[in-house]
């Protein structure tokens, strides 16, 4: 469904991604692990159109989306949950979700998805009228994910959903990610919590200073000595 081929991305003169290629099949959970500054978030931002690749191609459902503006990528069905949640703090939970469905015209479908989001995240229903800035970190993460689901994506890009959350909340979030995936949304997950990410993913890519250094089925990578030492803290 998504095929990234040899992309180079720069921040000014600094090259953040060097010839990165990766592939995501429909229905999968693919995870991208790596240390700080490896280029994980850069890759997601490039996929969702917030950054433009200097070289290389991005193929999504037969169309090239490299360098397209963010709004047309969202329209095509790729939704990005940015790192650090970034909810609209002075808006209510409901208004945040409404903005997620900003590009959609099918009011009936939007209404159904409101129900679906509240079903996935009952906490959000309880706090429907609350300002999202007053939610806890975990709830904000739920809201950011719910907001992205409101765009009815075929492919959901998640950037570090476990960041700064309590272990119990991380578990909840990850089980919800699996649930979203079972309902038919393909997921590309960026994580530093490699252990957690590998345990729910089908396949994984390991990225280091802007290049992919390893890839394969998640279970295989989880068993590999090298990966264990470098990313799993010898677990």
């Amino acid at each position: 469904m998504l095929k990234v081929h040899q992309i180079d991305v720069f921040y000014g003169n600094i090259q953040a991604l060097k010839g990165v290629s990766l592939e995501v099949q429909e229905g999968e959970i693919v995870t991208l692990i790596g240390a700080n500054g490896a280029g994980k978030s850069t890759l997601l931002k490039t996929l969702s159109g917030l950054l433009k690749p200097k070289k290389g191609t991005i193929q999504y459902l037969e169309n090239s989306i490299a360098g397209k503006p963010a709004q047309s990528i969202v329209k095509a069905g790729i939704s990005h949950v940015p790192e650090g949640r970034r909810v609209f703090a002075n808006m209510t939970v409901e208004e945040n979700l409404q903005l997620g469905a900003y590009l959609r015209k099918d009011l009936q479908g939007v209404k159904q998805d409101f129900e679906r989001v509240y079903e996935l995240f009952p906490r959000l229903l309880e706090r429907k009228k609350q300002l999202s800035g007053t939610l806890s970190g975990g709830e904000q993460q739920m809201l950011a994910m719910g907001r992205a689901i409101m765009a009815k994506p075929k492919l959901l890009l998640l950037d570090e959903p476990s960041m700064g959350l309590a272990p119990l909340m991380v578990k909840t979030i990850f089980s919800i990610i699996e649930e979203i995936n079972r309902a038919g949304t393909t997921i590309l997950l960026v994580e530093q919590n490699a252990h957690m990410a590998l345990s729910i993913a089908n396949r994984a890519y390991v990225i280091e200073t802007g290049s992919v250094v390893a890839s394969g089925p998640a279970a295989e990578l989880q068993a590999s000595e090298q990966i264990k030492e470098a990313y799993l803290g010898g677990l």
Partner: peptide
């Protein structure tokens, strides 16, 4: 209107607004 909400989302968080598909 929906345009106004889009403007407010720019004020609140430009990156998230961008990621939501708002121009």
């Amino acid at each position: 209107s929906r345009h106004g909400r889009a403007c407010i989302s720019v004020r609140e968080n430009e990156i998230a607004a961008d990621a939501m598909g708002i121009n």
